[in-house]
Amino acid sequence: MQKINLINKYKIKSVSIENHKSIEKLCKECSDYYILHNGKIPSKEDTDEICTALPPNKSYEDKFVLGIYKFDNELVGIVDIVKDFPTIGEWMLGLMLIKPEERGNRLGKIVHEALVGWAIDLGATSFRIGAIEDNYKGINFWTTLGYTKVKEVNMDFTEKSHIVNVMTLKVQ
């Protein structure tokens, strides 16, 4: 992926396991998400998993781990997205994590709009996300962007079990 310059002078660009220290710092700053989701603060394994975890029958060529950078090159967010999963044309947005002090200023919406445009150019026709039912702010955010709930699934995480709302958005 080439760099995407956003309208707010932030940018999106690829990151990898080599960026572990900055990813780990971001995850710790977003420990509210991890406590809600996993029941504990993020571990090194949680951080590594952002770059390494793959869904069934997918390769690293299908996975994009993207950093959201402030104009001073500070990593303020991360996105994990897999193309053509679970079906061709549907892209799974596995994670969009933004530092707490960067939330609420439209950054998430700006990033999402840029990702949709980029993904459409690569053949995306829809996006899919999973939002845990307890993440009221997250569900509200995704609903505001036009995502609709298509089903619920029960999932076990590190130290918690959740009902996960599977939500989709048609982009073409």
Rank of each mutant, 00 (worst) to 15 (best):
E113F: 08
F141G: 03
T125L: 04
P56L: 12
V164N: 10
T125D: 08
L95N: 04
I4L: 14
I81V: 14
G94W: 05
V150A: 08
I132M: 10
I17S: 09
L115G: 11
Y136V: 13
H37Q: 12
V82F: 07
H162C: 12
E24A: 14
G117M: 11
M1N: 12
I50S: 00
K137A: 10
G94M: 03
V15A: 02
I120K: 13
I17F: 07
C51E: 02
K13V: 02
D48C: 12
R106P: 03
M167N: 08
E49P: 00
S161T: 15
V164L: 13
E90T: 15
E29G: 04
V171H: 03
Y33A: 00
I12G: 05
L145R: 09
E113T: 11
Q172P: 05
T158H: 14
T87K: 13
N57T: 11
N38K: 07
K21W: 00
P42H: 08
T168K: 13
L36V: 02
L145Y: 09
T144K: 15
V79H: 01
E74K: 02
R128G: 13
G67M: 05
S43C: 11
V65A: 07
D48T: 11
K11F: 15
G117D: 15
W118Y: 15
E113P: 00
T168G: 04
G94T: 02
E45I: 15
V111P: 01
K25D: 04
E90F: 07
